[in-house]
Design a protein around this nucleic acid. Sequence first.
DNA 1: CTGAAAGCGCTAACAT
DNA 2: ATGTTAGCGCTTTCAG
Lengths: 340, 340
Amino acid sequence: MKKAKRNKPSIYDIAQTVGVSAAAVSYVINGKDKVSEKTKKKILETMAAMGYVIDQSAVSLSKGKSSLVGICFPLESSSLVFSDNPFYSEFLANFEREISKGGYDTIIGYLKSPSDFERWLISRGLDGLVLFGLYSPEIFKIIHAHKTPYVLTDFYDPALNALSIRVDDALGGYLAGKHLIELGHKRIAFVGGELATSKVDSKRLEGLNAALAEAMLPAARLIETSTNFEGGYLAAEELLASRDETAVFCGSDIVAIGLMRRAQELGVSIPEDLSVVGFDDLKACTYVYPALTTIAQNIPLKGQVAATALLEAMNGGEGMNFPPIEPRLILRNSTASPKK
Amino acid sequence: MKKAKRNKPSIYDIAQTVGVSAAAVSYVINGKDKVSEKTKKKILETMAAMGYVIDQSAVSLSKGKSSLVGICFPLESSSLVFSDNPFYSEFLANFEREISKGGYDTIIGYLKSPSDFERWLISRGLDGLVLFGLYSPEIFKIIHAHKTPYVLTDFYDPALNALSIRVDDALGGYLAGKHLIELGHKRIAFVGGELATSKVDSKRLEGLNAALAEAMLPAARLIETSTNFEGGYLAAEELLASRDETAVFCGSDIVAIGLMRRAQELGVSIPEDLSVVGFDDLKACTYVYPALTTIAQNIPLKGQVAATALLEAMNGGEGMNFPPIEPRLILRNSTASPKK
DNA sequence: CTGAAAGCGCTAACAT
DNA sequence: ATGTTAGCGCTTTCAG
């Protein structure tokens, strides 16, 4: 195979012009201090002069380390989760920025079949993985077989002793409940994803019910829907069919936003007729009117912590489980005391 | 360097168990029909049986082709453009899905310094590039020096004979103006990014003014701001300081959303007191209340076309410039006839 | 139709 | 402190 002549210089080229061996160049590149200051300096200079740039493929082949991490999004109901819920892109932006400090590039992927996943993981020689959502045992088997460090987000399976970045969802739910109760609400609904598959939402509901119980109030009415705008939009109708509740807590902002939207179309005004609180603290919370009161899970921090944890894991540092991120209530304008 | 024993099989391993040479295996992998059906079949079978997965680093090193494309976002004012404007993530989602059909993985990056950019481009051996925003001539020099195919989005420099994916921005502006004029508005404002750097917004304004001129109406009042929620939010105050205009056309939905938000806080109701139309057709258009009337640029299509064009370019197919995407008006609830 | 072997750029023993 | 050399896994002439 012939490549275009005179492309980029290799370590041999620079070694040759400096008058040393390729190994010497490799040493200075890798910071092994096996080279005298003098030659090191000369090497560095010629590298700059000749515009040397290391070839990652070669490094990868030689070291078995790609400096690539994969981030894998669930492929929910064949829609692009990415544009479904801004949560993902906000997370990605912050994760990427942090992991790049460690010299890693991020490659994105969607979860297709296990065999596609394996091909993706192996052929690229991914050094680490970030996984969103739920994955089958088969997937984990693959990951374990290749000993790839990974971090899970919002994962709750205690059987799996894995790094998991999450917020204290139950506390978040509790906070939301507490806030609504203090405002004087007695009947509260919860709108979230299918509890069977969304552990996160289960926890959030749990927290809400704990607050309710503490105040001797009845447990929340539960409405399950899909975790996106449309889900919230649809749930609004079900919620408003009976007007027993004066407040609703949604498992995600995007659901809350959809719900508010539909409620307004149906003529119920927020927060006068209905208080709503969300969870996540997306940017979009301030896009809507009234601005959405929510439980912040500090997405930027989450992205950053995930990166830090993964970096740690890839450097061999086992254990190092990060404590859950503490959620907090962000007061905006979608909640108020009930009218009557 | 010793790697953990018995890791993944190489073509040698599979060649050995089949009883042929490594070359034969390589041939079948690459679909060169230089191998008899019989052996080909046996090779395929053992590959499956042994769980063979090709190593991209090796391929990349050998062929000088990484099967990786980079997508580069501007790093505006040190903020994460990604969470600033959902446009980017919606584009990315669709681009990624399409390009992956061609066997490419997408690696994301932000534009840092030219030398960082070069390091990124070269060290990963990127096969193609998608560029958002404005780049210095220096950057293009680098790209050209390495002969990397690329596609630009929303780029208007005719001097640069490059693949560029864009919508007909002027037509979009015209459509927006026409709509507002037909509604009976006589004084219209335009809120967009700095025209000096945003060619896109210049074109959109141009189109608006063309419609205005056609109707013998005065040109639009121009308010420049930053292209994000905060920008629109701030612009609202300036716009509403004088109440001469009854309608406003914003260069991007995200700006329109910020503007609407602030306007509502200031007590002006939309569309009764002020009509607003955006540009992009983000999902978020329906999150807000009233839902935003906008000029759709069909983001999914844009992402898809960008991928197709890049695929084409990477396969040597030069030229192939795609026609601009045709924008269309999406009627929602943020526009109405002026009151008086 | 099949195999041997050189080479892609870099790393890491193992000398010297 | 520096050089030699054998891979890493795959592709691709060039010979059979």
